[in-house]
Amino acid sequence: MAMLTVENLEVYYGVIKALKGISFEVREGEVIALIGANGAGKTTILHTVTGLLPAKSGSISFCGEELTKTPAHKIVSMGMAHVPEGRRIFQELTVLDNLKLGAFTRRDKEEINESLEKVYQRFERLKERKSQIAGTLSGGEQQMLALGRALMSRPKIILMDEPSMGLSPLYVSEIFHIIQEISQAGTTVLLVEQNAKKALSIADRAYVLETGKIVLSGDAKELMKDDSVKKAYLGEG
């Protein structure tokens, strides 16, 4: 059964139609990649699914519940975490405060501490720097923090918006490695990426987005061989 199903989603910015009837689904345990050029509407999709933007029409169902009328703060407690584009960590707060805010919708202190330990295990650097003001972390560390913060809500599904943006090749590989680990630990992943090659290499399935419409979808390994994908997104052929 699909964990997240989006059907005929339409979203407007004023009079501009940014999403022109998007449908896709994410099944439990999958890693789904969403690729597309700048301005295709990837961020808009994630913002609408997480309740930050209103949908004009269409439906979004998550674990059997309709999300289009659910406020953002409730969606998080249903088990959906969002790593927004450009990291958006809390620059003026400490690393620890950032992580605690990731668990904002949870109440049990002991369980939160357990999650904190897990995040520290995965990102040792965050532990060393827990009292540091987050704005002074390096770009790569900030991305780690954004990921760790999202994990603090113990999500069923995690939506990531260009986690590799602006990172050096070494860090990019590390981030993708971590995404795979997160997936293996049982969290479903919806991944938006510019780095199509890397994204397709770790994804099960993928959707290709062009100016607000899905133009191609299928098995990630198959899409890697597709000529149009090669040309437009992999810089080959």
């Binding site: 930050l52 927004p84 960590i89 707060l93």
Partner: peptide, 10 residues
């Protein structure tokens, strides 16, 4: 600090 982030964290 960051209203979008805090909204997206619930």
């Amino acid at each position: 600090d960051n209203i979008i982030a805090s909204e997206s964290l619930g």
